[in-house]
């Protein structure tokens, strides 16, 4: 299970895009859904990309928590859910890091979005695919501008996560 997960971590995004393209293509097994070249297809692809990273890093975060946390919660009468919550609370910094890393992977992703989305203007053009297109068209200043927007977005989300973790609790 962990090996599969770790392989999924290193999966090239273009390959994921290809597989989903194959599944969603009109003649593919899920073709009837008509999802190919829609923004929903991009969401599906990005979720599949982010899930293994989020899962693997969260598992590592939880495993790294002091075993006394679980025992302490249990001996104080906590049930399964409350105990899990107590463990997650103690691991919240590493769990947040898992979210940040998964978010980073999705944010910077081009290949899958391009293949399953098709880079259709006003429909499935994402910031990264737009940058790719602008660069290949020689519109360098537009590409840089969009890149800055993307960076600002990444920064904002990271700052928000940092704030959510609560300040002063290093």
């Amino acid at each position: 299970m962990l090996v599969l997960l770790n392989t999924a971590l290193a999966f090239p995004t273009v390959v994921i895009g290809l597989i989903i393209y194959g599944l969603l293509a009109r003649r593919g097994p899920l073709g009837a859904l008509g999802l190919l070249f829609t923004w929903q297809a991009i969401v599906v692809a990005e979720v599949i990309l982010a899930l293994p990273i989020a899962t693997a890093l969260s598992a590592a975060a939880v495993q790294a928590v002091d075993p006394r946390v679980r025992r302490t919660a249990l001996t104080l009468g906590a049930g399964t859910l409350r105990t899990a919550w107590a463990v997650a609370r103690e691991a919240r910094f590493t769990l947040a890091a898992a979210v940040v890393v998964a978010f980073g992977r999705v944010l910077s992703e081009v290949g899958a979005a391009l293949i399953v989305g098709g880079n259709i203007r006003h429909e499935t053009r994402t910031l990264t695919t737009a940058i790719t297109l602008a660069t290949s068209q020689g519109n360098f200043s537009l590409a840089v501008g969009l890149g800055l927007v993307l960076l600002a977005l990444a920064l904002t989300v990271n700052v928000l996560i940092q704030l959510l973790q609560g300040r002063g609790d290093a």
Partner: peptide, 21 residues
């Protein structure tokens, strides 16, 4: 336990844990 574990947060929050449970 021999080396008791205190949860993140305040002392009062720790003492409240079992009561909330």
């Amino acid at each position: 336990e021999q080396r008791p574990y205190l949860f993140r947060g305040t002392v009062a929050g720790n003492v409240a844990f079992g009561l909330r449970a």
